[in-house]
Write a protein that binds this DNA or RNA. Sequence first.
RNA 1: GGGGGUAUAGCUCAGUUGGAUAGAGCAACGGCCUUCUAAGCCGUGGGUCGAGGGUUCGAAUCCUUCUACCCCCGCCA
Length: 561
Amino acid sequence: MKEQISQLISQALETLVAQGSLPGDISPRIQIDRTRDKSHGDLASNIALTLAKSAGRPPRDLAAELCAALPPSPLVERTEIAGPGFINFFLSDDSNQAIVRAIIEQGASFGHSEAGKGQQVQVEFVSANPTGPLHVGHGRGAAVGDSLCRLLAATGWNVSSEFYYNDAGAQIDNLALSVQARCRGLTPDDDQWPEDGYRGDYIADVATAYMAGATIDAEDQHVTGAADAEDLDAVRKFAVAYLRREQDLDLKAFATHFDLYFLESSLYQSGAVEETVTRLVGNGHTYEQEGALWLRTTDFGDDKDRVMRKRDGGYTYFLPDVAYHLNKWQRGFKRVINEQGADHHSTVTRVRAGLQALQADIPEGWPEYVLHQMVTVMRDGEEVKISKRAGSYVTLRDLIDEVGRDATRYFLVARGPSSQLTFDIDLALSQSNDNPVYYIQYAHARVCSIMRKLAEQGESWNPESGLDSLQRLQEEHEKALLRRLDRFPEVVAGAATSLEPHNVANYLKDLAGDFHAWYNAHKTLVEDKALRDARLALSEAVRQVIANGLDLLGVSAPESM
RNA sequence: GGGGGUAUAGCUCAGUUGGAUAGAGCAACGGCCUUCUAAGCCGUGGGUCGAGGGUUCGAAUCCUUCUACCCCCGCCA
């Protein structure tokens, strides 16, 4: 719609230039905005304001000439000049109502686009190390990351989702020692308990399963417990598999899927880490100091240089990170998005610096990052910190068990990633209009309920009759809904471009509000069949858009509540 | 001390990338169920957009200085 109005203006500008009213050397960027106030029409352009200076004319005069030069169009009912020189477009009923037909014809794909042109994009998110259950912060990463994947897929990108984890480093040794201690019957309060060992109850569960010879089938790990407390390597392998399976269950309960699980250890096995070191040294960006090998990341914008190889010969996490991203690049991903907690912010400059130092023709801003701020959990007005299972943090599973998957996902994705998030358990649990998840789902269920009611009356909805009678939708509530529905494709495209899924959540709340207001003001199942079918068409369009929007957030659209 | 983030109604947060009189929900107050699900609707009140300066036709939005809070600043990940 914006595009079509833009073309009308463009033609009017050419006319004015031809008439000599405007200089020929102008190159205006035609901007069309949705109006905030419906008394300003449906769409507005500031073109006269932006051209006023270069044309040396008062903006309102310019606007008047532009309006006069606009070619007639069935889309536009009339135009007005307002304020300092805005041109307001009042669209015709036909053009506003056409959206209903578009939605019903396109169904689940309405709102989708081909903007990505099938290009590949890889999204890495969660990437938790297998040292314990996923916590709320991982949950936010999962909700945002998965929703980004859905948004990018809906806008024409070919998306690969990936989960990267360290299965071998110092933290995993610590995990193995903790499980081994439990196998030996120790508890965290014993003197012999490993220093900095993991104290959560889940460690005991891992030990029990290991000693019982249990078999673990995770997405990417398959191990049987050796039942030998002294075999630390077997304990380690088992613990990693066990906790990966736990995380799989967490992610499954959260309806989050990954195309690939990438192991840090594979970078050592394939020689990618060594190769990366060789290239960095060969490119002259390294030096040795105090027995360690440093990368001069300050050459690439870092505030200090970083150690790559420790004095003891082991690598810091930083180096495999660079090797991993080189691997992504070599796999052909020209676009990569990493979704991480903001506490890992310092890795952004570092990884990019490492990639530049490779001199592999990787663009400076590659990869992209989406960083989410911290999550705190509140209950009864107080911060919740301790989980029995995990010991020191609130697990994602606890939340899903308590408030449900839909509410958990919605709340974690409904705020901009850069805002700190307070997860209010009482609010997420409340079954009232306090709770936006149910508010939106209820709108969807209400439409389904109307359709059921119609069937109970022995009637059925005739879509063709409804679409042919759309001009009967003349109530203000109906016009507001039409305007709202028309915006959905822009909202999806915008959320995908800015990598901000919360825009979809906000839109759905507004759409549901418009629908509930209409529902209460006007009955759908009226005697007049043409009006009834038209209202059913509008209802069905609302239902479809809510379903499509909720799907982008990974939230279900129930047919009844 | 350095880097990043945030600051908008009593609370939680939006604000279409610089547009017209800054919005929503909650909380407060007052209404609406014999009528398609009241997990709903209607109405009222509520603001120095953290503070100062700047850019311009026009700023919550861009630049600058300052203040407060959060995160990071390890040869941990």
